[in-house]
Simulated scan of single mutants.
Amino acid sequence: MAQLKAHEVDAWLARQSAGTSIVLVYGPDRGLVSERATKFAEKAGVDLNDPFSVARLDAADLDKMPGRLLDEANTIPMFSGKRLLWVRNAQAQKSLAEDMKALCAAPPADAVVVIEAGDLKKGTALRSVVEAARSAMALPCYADDARAMDGIIDDELRNAGLSIDQDARALLRRNLGGDRLASRGEVAKLALFAMGRGSIALEDVRALTGDASATSADEAVDAVLAGDLSAFDTAFTRQALGTSQAYTVLSGLQRQLLSLQVMRAAMESTGATAGSAVAAARPPVFFARRKLVEAALERWNSRTLAEFLDRVQQTVLETRRRPDLAIALAHETLTRIAIAAKRGR
Rank of each mutant, 00 (worst) to 15 (best):
W12C: 02
A14H: 03
Q16Y: 01
T20L: 07
S21C: 09
V23Y: 04
V23I: 13
P28Q: 12
V33W: 09
E35R: 06
E35A: 14
E35V: 02
K39H: 10
A41S: 14
E42G: 03
E42H: 03
V46G: 06
D50Q: 06
P51D: 03
P51C: 03
D58M: 11
D58A: 15
D58S: 13
A59V: 04
K64L: 10
R68T: 09
E72V: 11
A73G: 03
N74V: 02
L84N: 07
N89A: 12
Q91G: 15
Q93E: 15
A97D: 06
E98V: 14
A102H: 10
A102W: 08
P108K: 11
A109R: 15
D110F: 11
D110N: 12
G118A: 12
K122F: 04
G123I: 12
R127C: 10
V129C: 07
E131R: 09
E131K: 11
A133Y: 07
S135K: 00
D145L: 11
A148R: 15
L162N: 08
D165P: 04
D165S: 09
D167F: 02
R169L: 13
L171I: 11
L172F: 05
N175Q: 10
D179M: 10
L181S: 14
A182H: 03
E186G: 00
E186K: 00
A188Y: 01
M195H: 14
M195E: 13
I200A: 02
A201H: 12
E203T: 07
E203P: 00
L208Y: 01
L208W: 01
T209C: 15
G210P: 02
G210C: 08
G210D: 02
A212N: 09
T215E: 15
S216V: 00
V221D: 00
D222H: 06
A223Q: 00
D233S: 13
L241T: 14
A246K: 05
T248S: 13
T248M: 14
V249C: 12
V249M: 09
L253P: 09
Q254I: 07
Q256A: 05
S259A: 07
R264Y: 04
E268H: 05
G271W: 10
G271K: 09
V278C: 07
R282V: 08
F287M: 07
A288I: 03
A296F: 06
E298P: 00
R299P: 06
N301H: 13
R303W: 04
T304L: 14
L305S: 02
R311F: 07
R311V: 03
Q313S: 15
E318L: 14
T319V: 15
T319Q: 12
R322P: 01
P323A: 11
P323D: 10
L325N: 05
H331W: 04
T333V: 12
L334E: 04
T335Q: 01
R336V: 12
I339N: 00
A341V: 04
A341R: 02
K342M: 09
K342T: 01
